[in-house]
Amino acid sequence: MDVIIDNLPAYVDGFLRTLFLSVVSGIFALIFGTLLAAARVSPVAALRGFSMTYVEIVRNTPLTIAFFFAAVVLPRLGVTFQQFEVAAIIALSAYTSAFIAEAVRSGVNSVPVGQAEAARSIGMKFSQVLTLIILPQALRTVIPPMINILIALVKNSSVAGAFYVMELFGYGRQLANANGDAVLWVLVGVAFFYLLITVPLGYIANLVERKVAIAR
């Protein structure tokens, strides 16, 4: 127990970095994932092909590969950054966006095709059909699975700890090495701070699910 209280500043610093990584990557992943989903249902074959290939590759390879790619391969290709956080955000957003894209796509498919036909028949362009008619209806059904993906993102951000980013897990490793006699409590502390983010997210998911159920 003492080891947690003694190292509280480290925990809090790690917690804030984990929160930062999750929020920033989450926002990028939501934007990029929705664009990928839009590309996947667009009338342009090249966009559909790109989206499908991207999602299939990224979704079916381990997150660690995305991290290696962002932290090791990108700098060799000339994309350099001062902090490893940037690499972590790139890896996490790129990885999570594939899952978001699939969730949004399933939501789009849940909207009856007649909605799009009606929208097209009053003269809407593809972008209008998507943003005014399809996505607003799709997002309602997509929010619960989306929050699951975001919870996974928070936990996945721990991989950044292995790439020199001092987030919760990075500190956890350091503290565990320094306090060999209290490893259990060090890890309990780490788990507690993760729960501090993920449990409220799950709670929000429940709230939203109920709200959507009423709106139907």
């Binding site: 009856p112 007649g114 909605q115 036909e117 929208a119 009053i122 209806q137 309602r140």
Partner: peptide
């Protein structure tokens, strides 16, 4: 265009 299944925008 008027459809068999109305297709009013549900939201």
């Amino acid at each position: 265009m008027v459809f068999q299944s109305f297709n009013l925008f549900a939201h």
